[in-house]
Nucleic acid binder design. Sequence first.
RNA 1: GGGGGCGUAGCUCAAUUCGGUUAGAGCGCCGGCCUGUCACGCCGGAGGUUGCGGGUUCGAGUCCCGUCGCUCCCGCCA
Length: 598
Amino acid sequence: MHRYRTHNCGELRAGRVGETVRLSGWVHRVRDHGGIIFVDLRDSHGITQVVVHPERDFYEAVEHWRLESVICFTGVVVQRSPDTVNARLATGEVELDAQEMEILNDSLVLPFSVAVEDDCDENLRLRHRFLDLRRAGLHERILLRSRVVKAIRRILGDDLGFSEFQTPILTKSSPEGARDFLVPSRLHPGKFYALPQAPQLFKQLLMISGFDRYFQIAPCFRDEDARADRSPGEFYQVDLEMAFATQDDVFDVVEKLFTRLFPEFTDKKVSGAPFVRIPYREAMVKYGTDKPDLRIPIEIQDVSELFRDCEFNAFRQVVRGGGVVRAIPARGIAGRPRSFFDNLIAFAQERGGKGLAYLSWVEDGVKSPIAKFFPESALEDLRRRGGLGVGDVMFFVADQEKAATRLAGEVRNRLADLLDLRDDGRFDFCWIVDYPLFELNEETGKIDFSHNPFSLPQGGMEALETQAPLAVLGYQYDLVCNGVELSSGAIRNHRPDIMIKAFAIAGYGESVVEDKFGGLLRAFKFGAPPHGGIAPGLDRLVMLLAGCRNIREVTAFPLNQNAQDLLLGAPGTVDPRQLKDLHIQMKPAKAGKGSQAG
RNA sequence: GGGGGCGUAGCUCAAUUCGGUUAGAGCGCCGGCCUGUCACGCCGGAGGUUGCGGGUUCGAGUCCCGUCGCUCCCGCCA
């Protein structure tokens, strides 16, 4: 008989009745009846009820166990009587009549319950992540992540002809983008490696190296502050790149990946291929964001022209001053109490809006403080544009374009929250396409790359030479699902002359390009194939499938919000000798702030 | 760097409008009882510097100021 177990805790069924078996697992719960004692023994596979009778020589010991101790039982599988079958347990038809018992490891009193998944302080959970990971919810999500990764490798690798590559972890600091994690060099005093923010340059180099379809479950490192959906430190991308590919080819592969992957892990309705494509500028008007939740049945409209000559002074001035008015229709809420509208107005003001006007269509006409400013025909025009009827409302935001767009989008999302407008049974994918290649940096007034500097401009060199920089579109795209930005990608610029021209427009001279991207530029001069790709975020993907909002709920060992590992104590101090090797001299630190880990 | 929310037993929470008796409950822990439970049940017990410091007050968990920590957001995230 195996030293620890002949079966796991989730597999015994009536067919094994009468057999002598051995199980090992954690004490999940104990029900001590004075005479008979029931132990729920748990492992990763499930729970089996173990029965300890008073005559066993280990009976006394059982009373002193603590929950989560690790125990090995040997005994006979027994059929439960019909009235004691537990239908909620996969193994509930049978139980183990314990005849031998061995304690493999005791547990201290628990800092929080494993069996009952109460909320508790997250740092307490992180300090005891090994206990947290035993709890069913997190345990299952981490296993889900494992299955998702396995399926991605199968679909991309086996079905779609991608090869998996590893790329360096010690690489070069990138001049743009997020803050880098730096690793000091021992052999080269004063120089540093950087951890990759993404394998961007390497995957392009792989294409230039003649490989055809690359993918990697790639770790990415960015030293940025945390958010609920953003780890401080590291996260993973399903990074992929294709040679001789057009934008349509990339879309086709990604649509195949997700329309195959999602149904394996969810019963919700998943968009069919091809996914809806929405030009960036259209998305910004209709949804007020470039990551729209298409489950929300509200489309914002630009109604600026209707207000240019209206008698409502506030809006007229905004429009004549170069601003815009955006209309947000909402059905069936005209009867909501005044407080509903007041709260929404307060919300808009909190988010930097000047206000939020609205028209309500009721039985006897249009009810609104601002209705008097508009002729009947204008009101009817608005009603028709929104497809509205009695009981419906239209909200208005007026401001400069950028602010009005953002606020209208936030109001749209807010309405969806308040009115429960998102259908939880759907995964609605869409592509956001035609991003501008450049954008205006409002602080400096200069032109920056909007997405990344490696994208191919639509229209190629001719577009860069003849169009206004801000009008040039790129072959750049985002994949969005249910309001979550799942990934960004692009068809790359593989021509050195176009690359130098694009950087020149962004204010970088050829010598800068040579200095920062010399390797890639050199590669472009030796027969680079056209190529492009995309990099869906694995963590966000699993979050979507698991239906959770916090990235730490799909990560086995996340850093906390202050980028600390509270279990192992990172970041930590190092031996002075290590610093000496690295040619590093410490300046006296300010009095330590929260740098102790438990 | 900035803003909002929070901080009471090992854990999750409560503590009456405007500050008023000995700060309570469930789970867990310790002890006792209980032979068919499966969130077992019953009886008893231990466990608190109300994050910390200061202030107002006859009196502060409650109000004010400061500080520390947590969390969500803004900045940031090519």
